[in-house]
Design a protein around this nucleic acid. Structure first.
Lengths: 215, 215
DNA sequence: ACTATGTCATACATTCCCGTACGACTTGTG
DNA sequence: CACAAGTCGTACGGGAATGTATGACATAGT
């Protein structure tokens, strides 16, 4: 149902987009839709509040074509975010969370980092356009995975328990995002990032009280 | 030289604002200027891209009055940032950096945190309106202080040397900003923040390799 | 108390962006 | 091949924000 020209009555709401996705679209259209989604990510990466025109240009597509697929800017970046998160889920759910908690955390961070680097900017843009509730809802799955891992680590004594899990979580987020920024600024090699992140987070979270010797 | 009505020829550039500050302004005007500067911080804190009208309203002042003091939005937030940083400098330069590096770091973080909490949002807004070079230039003093402290810590063996100082710096920034966000979201008590920050940063930076025992 | 100095309201021009409408053109698909 | 499905250019209307212009009004400072 891309071009709204085909729809006579426009009062009726669309079915939720997540449901019947690629119903009977033309192959060309599906490709363009994908191009636009991809372009949204890269365009937003470059400019946090890129205009619809910018995104369309980045996708090599007319602005009108874009509006044919996504009726409003908010819908566009929402669907782009959904798409990115779905794609991310497929990566993350392959990560084994078994075994030593610290090692599992390391694995999870390595995989998450890539996603944050790619879609982090998109998320920031979404936070300014979508209700906070919707954002949390979309992140729930990914966040829950990390949280339960941290909790298990605390129970098993691998991670310190004098800090609430929420703080461990935000610290993780924040450091990963910081690394993404550094990469974007050209001050950090993308390949090195996971190591830098771990190098900071692991000793910070590990349950070992270091008694500093006086003199 | 607030109202530009008084200035016949408007082609000539103003002298750098930082120089002759309160030349021969009326007391009233100086007060308003201060009110506007303060309002800028709080308004931006609430809404990252607050309009000039919003800021004027927050200051309890007409929009035109604001334009009398600051000829453009960019100039406004630049001067607000300068003001905040100057104010911050006066706090930070009282912090003793002598003695044990870790302890000094802790002191410096505690003091810096307050400033980040207050003016962090302003900085974010400034990053979207001012050239990056100007931002760095303004932060130089504060950043240099932290950097030299970290370097000294590394030389003295207090901080780990397997990570470049730049990464330690960004980590510090990023964690403080994260704490500020958490406070703004109501998920963290402002008084607890410094402790949480230290709790994460100190073990992360301290020069002690924890050998995880295999089974 | 008088005057330069500021303040404020209103109105206006400009710019930018979003979303819509139309119509001609191109291309996939049966 | 023919038709439906999709694309694109252009143009318009609405809204919001920036900055400008003007003049009436208030007030600080001498």
């Amino acid at each position: 149902m891309p071009t709204n020209r085909a729809r006579p009555t426009r009062g009726t709401r669309r079915a939720p987009a997540t449901a019947t996705r690629a119903a009977n679209q033309r192959a060309d259209a599906q490709r363009n839709r994908a191009k636009i989604l991809a372009a949204t990510v890269t365009a937003i990466r470059g400019n946090l509040d890129a205009s619809v025109a910018d995104i369309a240009a980045e996708a090599g597509v007319g602005r009108m074509t874009l509006y044919g697929h996504f009726q409003t800017r908010a819908e566009l970046i929402e669907e782009a975010l959904v798409d990115s998160l779905e794609r991310g889920e497929e990566v993350l759910k392959e990560v084994s969370l078994d075994g030593e908690a610290a090692a599992a955390f390391q694995r999870l961070v390595s995989s998450s980092w890539v996603l944050v680097d790619q879609s982090g900017a998109l998320l920031a843009a979404a936070q300014k356009e979508l209700p906070a509730a919707r954002i949390r809802e979309l992140h729930e799955k990914a966040e829950a995975r990390m949280r339960t891992l941290l909790l298990r680590g605390q129970r098993e004594g691998a991670f310190r328990t004098d800090l609430p899990v929420t703080w461990l979580l935000t610290t993780t987020h924040v450091v990963m995002n910081g690394a993404a920024e550094e990469v974007r600024a050209g001050r950090l090699d993308p390949g090195d990032a996971p190591w830098y992140i771990d190098a900071v987070l692991l000793p910070a979270f590990t349950q070992i009280i270091v008694t500093t010797e006086d003199t």
